[in-house]
Write a protein that binds this DNA or RNA. Structure first.
Lengths: 294, 294
DNA sequence: TCCATATCTAACTCCAGCTTACATAAATTG
DNA sequence: CAATTTATGTAAGCTGGAGTTAGATATGGA
């Protein structure tokens, strides 16, 4: 280990806290010190490394490219350390299982099944983080994440829970029951989008759709998205499995189904390594639950 | 990030250095401080966490289970930080590519091919670490490892270079040219083993052989192993691909070939993420080299 | 232009973390 | 079994890193 290359650790800690919070005051709060302390540490770290980590134009600080690289390493580095400390001091056992998922999956799949888990493992405490952003598992104390994708998360282990393509749907009230609207028609219709990052928005971005159609978009909270679609308030991009029954019942029409390889779907994403008992129980349970549902 | 759970960083650093070196004096040298400083840091870390990290019975310190857990997290945590710092300060580009491999593979496969790489990329500096122990790539600044296994390294990306089972071989001079020796006969023959951890020793351990046959073992440096086998000095466990020609020419006889699934072989093991240019060149080159050889 | 909201700087304080020197304890050896 | 070697532990004092407070400075928006 090349310890000589390791800068003063307090500077790294301050920088990591700043990168996490985005401003020096909040970083100071996070570490329990004053904002001036953070400011000094940031400056001394930059002079020590002789690398610009922060872009000081403007009244707030932004990370440079080098700063982003460093902050990522620090986030996972300190995160792993904190995790290990929690592990050996027993803080981790006492803490509830943190499950990160998207609002869409939480509402449509996970929450209806949770009572069964609670019944089977009454001792396990769960904590759902329905945060749509992709996060580094170890840094935030997340035990397991459930994400839509093709199973390729570098450094992570993924297990398919629900195989399903993306689909564009709308209520017959909006697009009519018979004729298939053309692409141009779709662009003229109102669209409902989920707030923030979500499966649907990722799909739109991947297909470069969002740029072309700035008009007629309505941002709604994820849990209201499907209700809005059924209600004819707009066109929605979502995961097919969640609207299968609506389509069958005629409440929604599938306007376009993504014909990707069938590796896309919701995956259980965990870190390699040993799992604590509560996590193991949850993972085993959800895998069985998924295989029975599929 | 739960910064409250992070102990004083100097204590963690001292502990990591101690875990790496195994004694307080060497740890002090590594960090450029006195042994007393390490000793104090270790003690204060233990009292801070209220967890026994060190077993103080005997005159030297040993890690407890909790200590091992923590040290692993620290090793990879600090390692990643150092790596990121080297990255953004440009120290990394200047440094030669570090390739960790086993002596067996280095001698039998890699080194004969290296001149071709040098000819193609004269600017790239290489550094072979023929260390048999499995190491954490990021902590020691290793860019890529080449290891025998089934491709399952959690958190790593593995690419098959040379598919081959293990085989037990000996010279006809030792076991005769015709009759196949029985298992009991084998136990009576002298065995050559590589020093330290190696593919062959791992195989022996996996099969529980080493315990039963303490007599007649000779430990030799890896590069002399095959010469000794051809010379009739003992029975050797090795990777079949390296003795294929010796077997065909009658210099060695295959006494037993492992009939495992064909996922076993030498793999190129890298960390997920972006590679620096020199590494990318090497990886591309060695993959092509391997596919042409196979 | 003024105000709110940021970050930066200066001066001062203090204790974490270091060094040196000595103590202690366990293996090793004659 | 005492002497020696080789570890780690402890004490005491020094010093600079890391923090605080208070005030300066810069930017963006009303």
């Amino acid at each position: 280990m090349e310890w000589r290359h390791l800068p003063p650790l307090s500077g790294l800690r301050a920088f990591a806290a700043f990168a996490e919070t985005g401003n020096v005051v909040a970083a100071g709060d996070a570490l329990g010190v004053s904002h001036a302390a953070i400011s000094q540490q940031l400056r001394s770290l930059e002079t020590h490394l002789d690398v610009a980590l922060l872009d000081r134009s403007g009244r707030s600080l932004a990370l440079t490219d080098a700063g982003v690289v460093l902050s990522r390493a620090l986030r996972s580095g300190f995160g792993g350390m904190i995790e290990a400390v929690e592990e050996i001091t027993g803080l981790r056992d006492a803490r509830p299982l943190h499950i990160s998922t998207t609002p869409m999956f939480a509402v449509s799949w996970l929450m209806p099944r949770l009572p069964a888990f609670r019944a089977k493992y009454p001792d396990a405490d769960l904590m759902l983080d329905p945060t749509p952003e992709v996060i580094a598992l170890s840094a935030d104390g997340i035990d397991v994440a459930i994400r839509y994708g093709n199973g390729n998360w570098p450094g992570m282990e993924a297990h398919m829970l629900l195989r399903s393509p993306m689909v564009v749907v709308a209520a017959p009230a909006l697009v009519g029951a018979d004729e298939m609207p053309s692409v141009d028609d779709l662009a003229d219709l109102p669209w409902l989008e989920e707030l923030g990052v979500s499966e649907g928005n990722n799909w739109l971005r991947r297909h470069g759709v969002s740029r072309g159609m700035t008009r007629g978009q309505t941002k709604v909270p994820g849990n209201l998205l499907l209700d809005g679609a059924r209600d004819g308030q707009g066109v929605v991009v979502t995961v097919r499995a969640f609207v299968e029954r609506d389509i069958a019942a005629g409440r929604l029409r599938a306007l376009f189904t993504e014909d990707e390889d069938d590796s896309f779907g919701y995956h259980l994403v965990t870190r390699p390594g040993v799992m604590r008992p509560a996590l193991k129980a949850f993972v085993t349970w959800i895998k069985r639950e998924a295989s029975e549902a599929g």
